[in-house]
Simulated scan of single mutants.
Amino acid sequence: MKRFVGTVLVAFLVAVAVKDVGAQATSADSLILYPTIILDGEYVPHIKIEDVLKVGKRRFKSRREMSQYYRMIYNLKKTYPYAQIAKYKLLEINENLKTLKTDREIKEYINRAEKELRNQFEKDLTKLTISQGKMLIKLIDRETGRTSYELVKELKGGFSATFWQGIARLFGSNLKTKFDPQGEDKILNELVFLYEQGLI
Rank of each mutant, 00 (worst) to 15 (best):
M1R: 15
M1L: 13
R3A: 14
F4P: 01
F4K: 08
V5L: 14
G6Y: 00
G6I: 00
F12N: 08
A15E: 05
V16R: 00
D20P: 00
V21K: 06
Q24P: 00
A25H: 09
S27W: 01
S30Q: 08
L33K: 12
L33S: 14
Y34M: 09
G41S: 06
P45W: 04
P45Q: 13
H46Q: 07
I47R: 05
K48A: 13
E50V: 07
E50K: 07
D51C: 08
V52F: 15
L53P: 04
K54R: 13
V55E: 08
G56V: 03
G56N: 10
G56S: 10
K57T: 14
R58Q: 12
R59H: 11
K61P: 00
S62T: 09
R63S: 15
R63C: 04
R64T: 11
M66G: 02
M66D: 04
M66Q: 13
Q68V: 11
Y69C: 04
Y69H: 12
Y70T: 12
Y70C: 07
R71S: 11
M72A: 14
Y74T: 12
Y74D: 06
N75S: 11
K78M: 13
T79S: 07
Y80I: 05
P81T: 09
Y82F: 15
Y82S: 04
Q84C: 07
I85C: 05
K87D: 11
Y88D: 11
I93Q: 03
I93A: 06
E95K: 14
N96S: 10
L97M: 12
L97T: 06
T102C: 04
E105I: 09
I106S: 10
I106N: 11
K107N: 07
K107R: 15
K107C: 00
Y109W: 06
Y109M: 02
I110W: 02
N111S: 10
K115F: 06
L117Y: 14
R118T: 12
N119A: 08
Q120P: 02
F121E: 02
K123Y: 10
T126Y: 02
T126N: 07
L128W: 03
I130C: 02
I130R: 08
I130L: 08
K134C: 03
I137H: 00
I137E: 01
K138R: 12
I140A: 05
R142S: 01
R146F: 09
S148R: 11
S148K: 11
Y149V: 07
L151G: 07
V152P: 00
K153H: 08
E154D: 15
G157Q: 07
G157M: 03
A161N: 08
T162H: 04
W164R: 06
Q165Y: 00
R169G: 01
F171N: 11
G172W: 00
N174Q: 03
K176S: 04
K178G: 03
K178A: 12
D180L: 02
D185F: 03
D185Q: 09
I187S: 09
E190S: 14
L191Q: 13
V192R: 01
V192Y: 00
F193A: 05
Q197P: 00
Q197W: 01
